[in-house]
Amino acid sequence: MSMRIGYGFDSHAFKAGVPLVIGGLKIEHSEGLAGHSDGDVLLHAITDALLGAVSAGDIGSFFPPSDARWKNADSSIFLQTALEEIAVAGYRIVNIDTVLVLAAPKIGPIAGELRERVAELLGVKPGEVGIKAKTPEGLNQDHVAVAHATVLLESATSPEQLTAMTAAADTEDQMNAVVKTLVGDSRDVSALGRKVPAFDTDDLT
């Protein structure tokens, strides 16, 4: 069985006048996170961890901030694309561990709800998702939210099976059928980032 490890990191400054979204949850707070999309620092880090684990580039290569389509976009779209990538590569999630670094709001009281939401978005069990939070003591980052994510993947099928399945998929509908076989759910990939050309380093976020 083949195993892969991926690591992701993201950071966003706080900004007044926008909602705070972390891990797919809207959180009551006086400020949200600045970003071209919804600024969901946790989902961005997880997305990068998943993409990195299968050597598929990073979030900026799929969803460049220069593209107006992703302005204020729901970051779960980015996560779905990463899930498509690992499925097509023939892998599935074993577990994921994350760390949020921010002065406020306090994550401890909502860590359980965050775990449930992230697990739902990833299609895994809550016990396979770690959510931890630290304060940025001594880092001079009181007005910034930082997220780290590490993911462990295992092969979902043999290389021979995967090659045969993907080679036979000539259309998006057929590729969706492959994904459904691998992860148990079919997603419309036409609006996602998988068809974007190889990444441009000028678009990294």
Rank of each mutant, 00 (worst) to 15 (best):
43 L>Y: 00
39 G>D: 12
15 K>P: 02
43 L>M: 07
37 S>G: 13
73 A>M: 02
22 I>D: 12
53 A>T: 03
21 V>A: 08
46 I>K: 00
58 D>K: 02
70 W>H: 08
77 I>V: 15
24 G>K: 02
47 T>Q: 01
80 Q>L: 10
80 Q>H: 02
10 D>T: 09
21 V>I: 13
44 H>E: 15
83 L>V: 11
64 P>C: 08
85 E>D: 09
55 S>Y: 07
27 I>H: 02
73 A>V: 01
18 V>N: 11
81 T>L: 06
82 A>G: 04
81 T>D: 09
41 V>R: 03
9 F>D: 08
45 A>T: 08
61 S>F: 07
21 V>R: 06
74 D>G: 05
61 S>I: 05
39 G>T: 12
86 I>D: 11
80 Q>V: 06
22 I>R: 02
81 T>A: 10
46 I>C: 06
65 P>Y: 07
42 L>H: 02
53 A>E: 07
46 I>P: 00
41 V>N: 06
8 G>T: 15
79 L>M: 03
34 A>R: 05
10 D>L: 05
86 I>G: 07
24 G>V: 13
49 A>Y: 00
44 H>A: 15
8 G>W: 01
35 G>C: 09
48 D>E: 07
8 G>M: 10
37 S>V: 06
85 E>C: 08
52 G>E: 14
14 F>W: 04
23 G>I: 09
80 Q>T: 10
30 S>T: 09
52 G>T: 14
74 D>I: 03
14 F>S: 12
75 S>K: 01
78 F>I: 02
75 S>L: 07
63 F>E: 03
38 D>P: 05
51 L>S: 10
59 I>S: 12
21 V>E: 07
30 S>Q: 10
30 S>K: 09
19 P>C: 15
36 H>K: 10
18 V>P: 01
82 A>S: 14
78 F>M: 09
69 R>Q: 09
71 K>N: 12
70 W>L: 15
78 F>G: 05
76 S>F: 00
31 E>V: 13
77 I>E: 11
31 E>K: 11
73 A>G: 05
13 A>G: 14
36 H>V: 15
64 P>A: 13
84 E>P: 03
69 R>D: 13
36 H>F: 15
10 D>N: 10
40 D>I: 13
86 I>T: 09
67 D>N: 13
81 T>V: 05
11 S>H: 09
22 I>K: 01
16 A>L: 11
69 R>C: 06
83 L>A: 07
27 I>Y: 03
9 F>G: 04
66 S>Q: 07
41 V>K: 03
51 L>M: 12
41 V>H: 03
53 A>R: 00
39 G>K: 01
38 D>K: 06
56 A>G: 08
37 S>E: 11
48 D>N: 14
36 H>W: 10
39 G>E: 09
73 A>F: 00
11 S>M: 08
40 D>K: 02
19 P>F: 04
58 D>V: 10
54 V>K: 00
25 L>R: 13
13 A>W: 03
13 A>L: 11
8 G>C: 10
